[in-house]
Write a protein that binds this DNA or RNA. Structure first.
Lengths: 342, 342
DNA sequence: CTGAAAGCGCTTACAG
DNA sequence: CTGAAAGCGCTTACAG
């Protein structure tokens, strides 16, 4: 608004340098809080920056150094669980120069790796991949180019990137334990079609182990459905109208559990009277009285917070891999009320 | 992987030029599909790009030209309606070089304008602001610096930016018409605390007009609540436990309507037996049997698609403002079933 | 149609 | 502690 009119619009580091009567190198140092600048110089520069309304151009910074941008790859914006993770990310980013930018990978435009490429093209300083279904090989390829933290992806042996998870196997076991304690025996699991999700693999394993340990090995039954509303409906319908329907269904995520409740109601069934339903993630919808959904809390906010901290550490140079795991707990609500068990 | 090993990692335009035996200027032209390059040169360059696995660095392109990135400012990731809009955005972006990057503005890190600044720093070619509550003055400030399209923000007189909306006033009137046709008379509205949302202003106006036209002016009652689950609960509770409770509540968005249903159920009320509830946006949750929520469909996908088209036109040079409006329609479900009306 | 050169706004060694 | 100069990977007039 003032002397930056020279170039027409935006104040640059050069304008600041002129205004403060110092070199551009000096301004750059103040900008990065680099060492080796006197207090008086720093003061002059800061004053000029303020006066000119100067803001560094991330793209230009990125040409030599950092852009102070972290890319978050989300598989699906509809699953409310991701909002919890993002809350944690934002908390971790407060008071830092870093800003998060989100890309949705399961959209029609981009696959997960295409989204990653696109983010690397845009000079992200680091990447947070959420619920990735990529192979270790692909993730290592990514990690070789940018600091990477995977949230919701199990690979405790990975050396090139960090992982942040809840203990999914345990979570699933706790669900089975909760249900059997309530008298349920015919417990099925509704999972997702995916050959590569380590999250699902762990939850399925936990379910199997839980059933075995309860002496219900013969009742193990896992159905797989695609992500879409339509597919889930069809699968749930198939389960519930089979000659030997389950007494309880454990769903891999809350959103699916809500759909199962819906299908059950449409079929005239009572939840939990005729069918118990349990979800995973303990998202805000579980609390609504019309759902009242028992679920597994994995502290999405904690996961997001830790992952972001780890990512910034990596950006700043850490190389040794870290693998963070939180302990999940079952939050019991009416949808699996034992008083109504068969 | 091949000869780009020179610089250590990423192939640049220079490597491509060397490999193809042409100038960097020529490569740049091929990249931008600019005119004035022979077919043979184009062929050679494309072959080299492929061979070297070349990808242009968006940040570097942005220093002189475009970054082919559009920034989407979302106020809230929890509202499922935004997913519908994003679906439309993705459809519009297919087969283009542009990629969408999303920022959440109502997070703790950024306000809406701060998010916009941050996106401008990161050289977005254009901005899509969704459900903005900024003043026209602020939006014009933004539009003066980057092409801007506002979705879910009414300002039909704006000349500096485009708007894309459904006819919110009409939508609200249709809701009142639907409810009164079902015999409901004591119809309240649950809105959001916001002095600046034009969307809310229009919906509230439509509600008022609808009530007046139905001769129910004396029953007009609008309550305002903050966005949080907690606040909505408190407000809904207040409404329902008043000495003269409403027979029907029209909520400004589905998410709030779901919370109202929850509160009603917790109070032992039947929906729609004791209370009719209507939402807005017709998101996927309306269809679930446990909600069965009547809502207003404003074709989020269409809005996203149109907005993105308009934005790309603006990026390519259009200056005259366009204001796109779709007609909403009420999708009737059980939550406002007239058979149960009082 | 093709290319050499300047420049976008920063950071990074390197001198002083 | 401070600054001059080179350079990051592109695009943009401008010559040829």
């Amino acid at each position: 608004m003032t002397e930056k009119t020279k170039s027409g619009s935006r104040a640059t580091i050069k304008h600041v340098a002129e205004d403060a009567g110092v070199s551009v190198a000096a301004v750059s140092k103040v900008l990065r809080d680099a060492y080796g600048v006197s207090e008086s110089l720093r003061g002059k520069v800061r004053a000029s920056m303020e006066k000119l309304g100067y803001r560094p151009l991330a793209a230009a910074r990125g040409m030599r150094g950092q852009t102070y941008t972290i890319g978050i790859v989300l598989p699906d914006i509809r699953n409310p669980f991701f909002a919890d993770i993002l809350t944690g990310v934002n908390t971790a980013l407060e008071r830092t120069q870093y800003r998060p930018l989100i890309g949705i990978s399961h959209s029609s435009v981009e696959t997960e790796m295409a989204m990653v490429e696109s983010m690397i093209d845009r000079q992200m300083d680091g990447l947070l991949m959420i619920g990735s279904t990529e192979t270790r090989g692909n993730l290592e390829l990514v990690a070789g180019r940018k600091p990477l933290v995977a949230v919701g992806h199990h690979d405790p042996e990975a050396t090139q990137f960090d992982t942040v998870n809840n203990h999914d196997q345990l979570g699933a076991m706790l669900v089975v334990k909760h249900l059997t304690a309530g008298g349920y025996k015919k417990i099925s699991m509704l999972s997702l079609i995916s050959g590569t999700s380590t999250i699902l693999a762990q939850r399925e394993l936990g379910y199997r182990r839980g059933m075995m340990e309860a002496g219900l090995g013969k009742n193990i039954k896992i159905l797989h459905s695609a992500q879409t509303l339509r597919e889930v409906k069809i699968t749930a319908n198939k389960m519930l109208s089979s000659p030997t329907p389950p007494e309880a269904i454990f769903c891999w995520t809350d959103l699916i559990a809500l759909e199962v409740i819906s299908v059950a109601k449409e079929m005239g069934m009572q939840v939990p009277g005729d069918l118990a339903v349990v979800g995973y993630d303990n998202t805000m919808f579980c609390d609504f009285a019309q759902n009242n959904l028992t679920s597994v809390d994995q502290s999405g906010e904690q996961l997001g917070l830790q992952a972001t901290r780890l990512l910034i550490e990596r950006i700043k140079g850490r190389n040794a891999a870290e693998h963070f795991v939180v302990t999940p707990r079952v939050v019991v609500r009416q949808s699996s009320d034992p008083r109504n068990s068969p």
